[in-house]
């Protein structure tokens, strides 16, 4: 039971942090939606778990202790999300490269123009 209370507290804190970040416009819209759903889902989970809501599903997957199932799905989500971040970062790096090159080439053109 105590574990559920801890999970509940963590979820509520996550929800508050997310809302704060959105209000301060530190999160991109798509990421804001994602983190809001994550916080809402964890809040719901911490409420639903003590009532045994996931016990049949966990047993279907052969997991004896239902919170472990939530953990596994959580890990899977984070693996996916870090991969997504990695892909986004690579794309940003490629764009940064193009922009830096353009700036350098344009600056060279400005410098090499004969004085009026």
């Amino acid at each position: 039971m105590k574990g559920d209370i801890l999970a509940g507290i963590i979820s509520v804190v996550l929800l508050m942090v997310t809302i704060r970040a959105i209000r301060q416009r530190r999160l991109m819209e798509t990421h804001a939606v994602l983190w809001l759903s994550v916080s809402v889902v964890t809040v719901l989970l911490s409420v639903a778990l003590p009532f045994g809501a996931f016990t049949p599903l966990a047993h279907f997957f052969g997991i004896a202790y239902p919170p472990d199932m939530v953990l596994v799905f959580g890990l899977f989500f984070f693996a996916l999300f870090t991969f997504h971040l990695s892909v986004s970062m690579s794309r940003l790096a490629a764009r940064e490269r193009v922009l830096a090159q353009e700036i350098a080439l344009v600056r060279e053109m400005l410098n090499s123009e004969p004085a009026p």
Partner: peptide, 25 residues
């Protein structure tokens, strides 16, 4: 020489490619 100065360090690949872009243009 003509000098194309990158505003940040891109590494050898990005630098050489800048030179090719210059040549193409």
């Amino acid at each position: 020489a003509n000098v194309v100065s990158l505003p940040l360090n891109l590494g050898i690949g990005g630098a050489v490619q800048t030179g090719y872009k210059f040549a193409v243009r």
